[in-house]
Design a protein around this nucleic acid. Sequence first.
DNA 1: TTGAAAGCGCTAACAT
DNA 2: ATGTTAGCGCTTTCAA
Lengths: 374, 374
Amino acid sequence: MNGVRSPAGRSVRGAGRGASAATLSDVARYAGVSRQTVSNAINSPELLRSDTLSRVQEAIATLGYSPNRAARNLRTQSSRLIGLRFPPAQEGTANALLDRFVHSLTETSQAAGYHVLLFSGDPEDPTDQAYDELIRSHSVDAFIVTDTYLGNPQTRWLRERGFPFAAFGRPWNDADSTHPWVDVDGAAGIELATHHLADAGHQRLAFLGWESDSPIMDDRHVGWQRAAGDRGVYAVERRVLDTVEAGARAAAELLDAEQISGFVCASDTLAMGVLHTLWHRQLAPGAEVGVVGFDDSQVAQVVQPGLTSVRQPLEEVAVHLVAALGRIIGSGAAEADDESDQEVTEDANDESREQAGLLLSPTLVVRGSSSRKS
Amino acid sequence: MNGVRSPAGRSVRGAGRGASAATLSDVARYAGVSRQTVSNAINSPELLRSDTLSRVQEAIATLGYSPNRAARNLRTQSSRLIGLRFPPAQEGTANALLDRFVHSLTETSQAAGYHVLLFSGDPEDPTDQAYDELIRSHSVDAFIVTDTYLGNPQTRWLRERGFPFAAFGRPWNDADSTHPWVDVDGAAGIELATHHLADAGHQRLAFLGWESDSPIMDDRHVGWQRAAGDRGVYAVERRVLDTVEAGARAAAELLDAEQISGFVCASDTLAMGVLHTLWHRQLAPGAEVGVVGFDDSQVAQVVQPGLTSVRQPLEEVAVHLVAALGRIIGSGAAEADDESDQEVTEDANDESREQAGLLLSPTLVVRGSSSRKS
DNA sequence: TTGAAAGCGCTAACAT
DNA sequence: ATGTTAGCGCTTTCAA
């Protein structure tokens, strides 16, 4: 009472294109059980008697069966897809978080049974329908939002909509948010950088940040203030555009007017500017002037003599974001459950009241640009 | 025998989470037409009388209706999703094509009614089931394959399977392939670079490539041979590891032993190595020694004094790949139709026999590292 | 030009 | 522990 179809099942494969895959019914017939039993073998194997289970699994393997995603999605009202807006590459800067983050997210999601769906759209455009369209068409089960620093209208909108999402970045200007988020402690990173330069013997330090009232910048600046205060070194700061040229100009000015020997930069781009000035003046990075950047970009890794930089643990960020989504998907959207494992790192003194938030500590990757002062 | 459901459909929206969206039936009822008519309004609007059409469209707008993807996918046996393996970030190198390419792909796909689905997997592992699993579950309609240089087993496997895909990269070692591909003419890029340095007055040129018998490397090397031959300059070449350190060492050796004043590098990573050596020796990039890299990475853009580099037109690559997929999806998989617009650029003399292939020309982005010899 | 019927492949609920 | 029934929301015949 089986075998009837088995040759057919095989022959389709050789037939060339299309290769119309086996369905649940095919497997059921082949294994001599009902369709529901096959479904159970996949989704609730503990319900089957072990001999039935192995017979079904064998049939599945033989026929090369995988459940049709569309059918399953339709039935379960889910897509097993996580939406991520993929922003344009920022050229001319050293910002290079995206690759590492997206790869980690892809791997982590896949391990959790999800895939990442990429879409594009303008986050500054209020008429942008990208998120809405994906939600209404049930194309994704949740979003990962990465641009919270824009005071992101999308974030608020998603919350109001009650659609599941998790953010890479704190809800800076949205006090009553309840969505899960993961962020990296920028203040702690800059503290690390500052202490590192002070430890290396630099007495006159400067902080180089970018203009604008971005909360990310403020955060990093807080770290500077804390560390510079702690160490009692001579400390000045400048805010300029986040470009190589502006960083170079600021460095020149700070060297001349303030005899700075240690530069704590809020970005690798600015740090590259500092290195340019040192190069022009024949000053040796590391030996004479210490420089630290932020983000551990490829630039930091390949520039001579290596740029010491604060590195964000993006792999961890991805892991925690996916875990957070797993907790809220299907369980009431924006309502984070307060009793589940809420971790807050030791750095998060001020933030420990945050709900569903997780603040990770960055590390400092030390390279030639900050080797011990001679 | 209807109507029973209507209040439920609406009221859910206010109820908070879930926001179970409107369905075709809701729209049909609201507009006073049959479900089929609504479907036609969306998929074949020309079939409707204009007044019916506008009434339906109004209903769609009012109810905020979008077709349920899963249902549509199930019915049409398609997913409107393009699979792309997202490889791990290569740290310590200047390879930075991915961001630009993926963003372009995302935008282009979206414009064509597709989304990009990311997955991970080990392309070197023959037991890796990532592609197979996605195909069998009907999760994607096609793939974009980017790692053809591996002599990619996946590529051959996909072809045998008859599953639609397009490749970024020529089918180097798969003569009888028939899949569409788009590639960038590396030989032309290196020719551009070489002529550029010769034009700047450099008489003693070196080509710095990486070891291994990668066909990509061979391609670039061909460009070197052509251009160096044309110009009759003194020309030497070296193959080393594709690292900054190896590039630096090779440059030192070439400066000492060959008095080279122009370096044509097969990667930005190697070019950075050359710049390091110049920096150590207080030689001015551009003015004294010309250096050109390949890929126009962020590193090239921010390093002092700017690294001249060959830039791949990734946006165009994405556009043509998506266009190619559009042609083959649903129309018999791997069978490219020979009469559709096959474009081959003027550089593709040798390749003009290629089927379904498109070779794009890179450009040279000139920066400080190759400014005219004084 | 519009409507009715059927079914894509799966899983949830119930019955056995 | 396994089978039966129903239906997720859509589009593709076919009929009116």
